Simulated assay, not measured.
Amino acid sequence: MNKRFRHRRQTFTLSGILLGLLLALSSCSFPGVVSTSEQLPQVNQAEPTPQLPPIHFPQDEGAHNKLTEWWYYTGHLNATSGDGKTHHYGFEMVIFQALRSNLPPVYASHFAISDITRGEFHYDQRRRVVSSAAIPDGTSTQGINVNVGDWSIRGLDGHDHLAASMKDYTVDLNLLARKEPVLHNKDGLITYGLAGYSYYYSRTNMEISGTIIDHGQHMNVTGKAWMDHQWGNFLTLGSGGWDWFSLQFKDNTEIMLYFIRDASGKILSTYIGYIDAQARDYLIPAQALQTSVLGSWTSPQTHITYPSGWKLTINDQHVQATLTITPQLKDQELVVYPSTGNVYWEGAVSISGQLNEKPVDGEGYIELTGYAPKTA
Rank of each mutant, 00 (worst) to 15 (best):
S339K: 02
I113H: 02
G364D: 00
S152T: 13
I135R: 15
I113V: 09
H76P: 08
H318L: 06
W226Y: 09
A177V: 08
W226P: 01
S299H: 05
Q328W: 08
T253V: 06
N220G: 10
S299D: 05
L156Y: 08
A263V: 13
P41F: 13
D214W: 04
G364P: 05
I267C: 11
S26V: 12
I272F: 04
A376F: 04
I135F: 15
E207V: 13
T86S: 14
A163C: 15
T11G: 13
F5V: 14
D83F: 01
S209A: 14
Q278D: 14
S140D: 11
Q39C: 14
L312R: 02
S101P: 02
L25P: 00
W226N: 00
L312Q: 00
E92W: 08
I213D: 01
G216K: 07
L14P: 03
Y201F: 11
D187Y: 10
S15K: 12
F234Q: 05
M227D: 08
G16C: 07
E180S: 15
T236P: 08
T270I: 07
E207T: 14
G149F: 04
T211K: 14
L237K: 05
E120Y: 08
D124I: 07
G273N: 04
W226D: 00
T324E: 06
T141E: 04
G210Y: 02
L268A: 14
Y192G: 03
H76L: 14
D115P: 02
G362M: 13
V360G: 01
Q39E: 12
L103P: 01
F259M: 10
T141Q: 09
V33W: 12
V171M: 11
S109K: 11
L257D: 00
R203G: 03
Y271Q: 02
N44P: 05
L257T: 01
Q320M: 13
D262A: 12
V360W: 04
M256Q: 06
V335L: 06
Q290D: 15
F30L: 13
A263M: 08
L329F: 01
E363H: 06
F111H: 04
E69C: 15
D168I: 01
F57A: 11
T222C: 03
C28F: 11
A321M: 10
S209F: 02
V34L: 13
W151K: 05
Y192Q: 05
D124A: 14
K358M: 12
W231V: 08
A195R: 02
A108Y: 04
S264Y: 10
E47G: 09
K250D: 07
E363T: 06
I113Q: 00
L334D: 02
N342Y: 07
K224R: 15
P327R: 02
G119M: 09
Q278L: 12
Y89G: 01
T298M: 06
G20P: 00
A372I: 04
D276G: 12
A63D: 03
I314D: 00
K186V: 11
T117D: 06
H215R: 15
I208M: 10
G16A: 07
M1C: 15
Y89N: 02
Y192E: 03
T313V: 10
K179Y: 03
A164L: 09
P285G: 07
I208E: 00
H56V: 10
